[in-house]
Nucleic acid binder design. Structure first.
Lengths: 241, 241
DNA sequence: CGTAGGTTTGACTGATCTCAAGTTTGGTGG
DNA sequence: CCACCAAACTTGAGATCAGTCAAACCTACG
């Protein structure tokens, strides 16, 4: 069970990658009330239409945001990993316009939204860090619109995997070519707007070309260069330092 | 030529739809330095990779943000209309991760980014209003990922047109069924991830079903109910009051 | 009046989807 | 430890939505 101290350590670490914090900022963060909880894979954290009262910090594992069509098809709109703030939007917007769920088993830290919101006014540096974080989030959504709208199935999948691996590295979770990406074909399909069957075929191709690990292993990028080429991946939109 | 006064009137109006402003807030906004400029259709306002020093407020006409694939295909990621702030993201992020261009002739008001950023610290209500604005932007991007990723060509186009008409109404530019939408088939194709040819066919169908104006007229929604059904449109994600 | 850009139409192509039947995997209880 | 089950994955065959190509048709504008 992760401790609250470790949680704020992670958060401070994340915010310091976005801006410079003072000791007072760090202290203010550490004094936030918090509640830690562990979820199994595929559990709902926030439901579309809710009015969440808590802000959710992901401590470990993976999560995603998604929306549904009327026909019941799921579109994943982003993936998240340790250190990510899953719902700054609910600080300022009444109702959740999308759902949030775990992808793998995950540890989560809940902080009352009102307390975080108070920090935005009281601590300019924290305001700035969270602004940056929210704007980078939006930049990633823009890239996803491009990815899903204009690229071939193969590029799309490659691009998405490159993004995840790059963000893992930026979050200090290991180099791209050393990161297992814990996604099922269904989840990849839901994130890229493809069918599960087609994802299977494309991943098979990428494995045959020795760009990805074989189909029966956890997904990992073997040939980073080639993968970036295939996915037209250029990480500038992630605005990492 | 629109005046600077009118420009700030528009901005204040927009921000007051997002939060309550004090007289001091309004005064601070009115004192911002500004420069007004008129652009023809299809002119670049911000180029991907730039480090914009000014923040851009759209006073009249339409604009869009877009990204390009390596093959040179353009994906429009959002449309904008009078009152929209086109690049709050450049207050906090160094380099533009996308380009911004006019769609029609447009009047634009430039405000130095540094001055706007100063207001975020000095005036909590303005900070909050711009936070809301940025988060709604992000919500729209999420909806676009769903739209482009999961819906049929017809739903996709219908949804996008419904969004535009709804936002026009929210911005005080006229009821949905009274709004001509000044988009070419190419622009619709670039926004929905479709080919121009296919957009022509789909718009033809929608006209035949008396949901849209005929092909030789400006695009306008005739049957709002039907159009919303076709596009699975539910405007909650726009977070308008 | 000639040119350019946008639009329309038809014929053909192809990437991706759907359906359906296996196969593997991981977890669970006997 | 094994048998069983559910869920995920794989594979093939056929269907379809949307793309490409190409030619003709507008319309605006110089």
């Amino acid at each position: 069970m992760p401790s609250a101290d470790a949680a704020f350590e992670l958060l401070i670490c994340k915010l310091e990658r976005l801006t410079r914090l003072t000791d007072a900022d760090r202290a203010a963060l550490q004094e936030l009330p918090s509640k830690i909880e562990i979820f199994a894979a595929d559990q709902l954290l926030v439901r579309e239409g809710d009015r969440p009262a808590d802000c959710c910090l992901l401590l470990g594992g993976y999560a995603c945001r998604y929306k549904m069509t009327e026909a019941g098809d799921r579109q994943i709109v982003s993936f998240h990993m340790a250190g990510d703030l899953l719902d700054i939007q609910h600080l300022m917007l009444e109702r959740a316009d999308h759902s949030i769920a775990t992808v793998t088993q995950a540890e989560v830290c809940w902080v009352p939204a009102a307390n975080v919101k108070a920090l935005l006014q009281a601590r300019p540096a924290i305001n700035e860090a969270l602004w940056r974080d929210a704007l980078i989030d939006a930049s990633i959504f823009r890239e996803w619109v491009l990815n899903v709208g204009r690229r071939s199935a193969t590029s799309r999948i490659a691009h998405m995997l490159c993004e995840l691996a790059t963000r893992r590295e930026a979050a200090g979770l290991g180099a791209p070519e050393a990161s297992d990406l814990p996604l099922t074909r269904q989840q990849i399909a839901q994130a890229t707007g493809l069918s599960t069957v087609h994802v299977t075929r494309v991943l098979g191709d990428l494995s045959n070309q020795r760009v990805l690990t074989p189909p029966d292993c956890p997904i990992r990028i073997i040939d980073w260069e080639r993968m970036c080429q295939v996915g037209e991946f250029n990480g500038l939109y992630l605005h990492a330092a």
